[in-house]
C-alpha cells in the first residue's frame, strides 16, 4: 500500500531523514516512535506530499505520488496541532472539508461519538484545545480511507474521549486498514500497536512487532524497552 525507498530530506543543514526504506503492505497498526526531531512527522508529511523529498521515491497504492494530489483521498490524516480558521463554526468547517473531499462521509457518527453536537455552531476560535482535537478527529475519521495517519492523536483529550478514540482506532483496524500512529504515550502503543518502527537520527533503528521489541531489549514494558534502545545507542556512540 505504501512503499518508501531511500527517502532523504534535510531542512537547511539539518538532515532529518537519511535514507528511509519502509513498506506497509499489510493492514495493521504501526506505531512510529522516536525521540523529538527523529523525523516521525516528516515521514508522514512526505507521504502526504506536504514535505517534498530531496531524493527517494514514495508510492501509495502502487502509484508514485510525486506531483500528484488525488491519491490523498486514500489517506486520512490527523495533524499534530489543530488550529482552524477562527471565524468558521465547527459545522461550517466540517461542511467545507466535505465539500473539498466528496467521498461519502460519516461525520454524524463521529460527532455523536465525541459529543460534539453542542459545539457545532460555535466558532472554532472560541473552542478549548481538547474540543478542537475532537473536531480534528471528526475530520480525520469521517472518511472511509484505507490508510490512516494519526500524529499525536491523544493530545488534550479527556479520559472518556481517550477511551472512545482507542475504540475507534481498534474498530478501524478490524475493518482492515493500515494505520500509522506517532505518539509519546507508550500506553497507547502497548494497547494498540502490532508493530513498532523506531526512528533515530533520520534512520530506522528498529522495526518489528511489540514482542520482538520487548525481546530485543529484554524488557516487559514498551516504555522501558524504548528507553533501553536509546541508552544503548548513546553508549555505542560514546564508545
Amino acid at each position: 500500500m505504501i512503499s518508501i525507498q531511500q527517502l532523504h530530506k534535510s531542512f537547511g543543514t539539518n538532515k532529518v531523514l537519511r535514507g528511509i526504506d519502509l513498506e506497509f503492505d499489510q493492514p495493521g497498526i504501526t506505531a512510529v516512535l522516536g525521540p523529538n526531531g527523529s523525523g516521525k512527522t516528516t515521514i508522514i508529511k512526505s507521504i502526504l506530499g506536504m514535505v517534498l523529498p530531496d531524493s527517494g521515491t514514495i508510492s501509495v497504492q502502487g502509484e508514485n505520488i510525486s506531483g500528484k494530489w488525488r491519491y490523498r483521498n486514500q489517506i486520512a490524516y490527523l495533524p499534530q496541532i489543530a488550529r482552524f480558521p477562527e471565524n468558521l463554526t465547527v459545522a461550517e468547517l466540517i461542511r467545507m472539508v466535505k465539500d473539498l473531499n466528496t467521498s461519502t462521509a460519516q461525520d454524524e457518527a463521529i460527532i455523536s461519538l465525541f459529543e460534539l453536537r453542542p459545539f457545532l455552531d460555535k466558532r472554532l476560535g472560541n473552542l478549548s484545545g481538547g474540543t478542537r482535537q475532537k473536531v480534528n478527529l471528526v475530520l480525520t475519521f469521517m472518511y472511509d480511507c484505507p490508510i490512516i495517519f494519526l500524529d499525536e492523536p491523544t493530545a488534550g483529550l479527556d479520559p472518556i474521549s481517550m477511551v472512545r478514540l482507542k475504540e475507534l482506532i481498534h474498530q478501524q483496524r478490524l475493518l482492515g486498514k493500515t494505520i500509522l500512529i506517532t505518539t509519546h504515550v507508550m500506553s497507547l502503543v502497548e494497547e494498540l500497536a502490532e508493530e513498532v518502527v523506531f526512528l533515530l537520527e533520520g534512520q530506522i533503528h528498529f522495526r518489528g512487532s511489540l514482542k520482538e521489541l520487548k525481546e530485543k531489549s529484554e524488557e516487559t514494558n514498551v516504555e522501558r524497552a524504548i528507553a533501553k534502545l536509546l541508552e544503548k545507542q548513546i553508549t555505542e556512540m560514546s564508545a
Partner: peptide, 10 residues
C-alpha cells in the same frame, strides 16, 4: 495550520 489541514486533503 488550516493550510496544513487543506494540504492533507485531496
Amino acid at each position: 495550520e488550516f493550510t496544513e489541514l487543506l494540504l492533507a486533503q485531496p
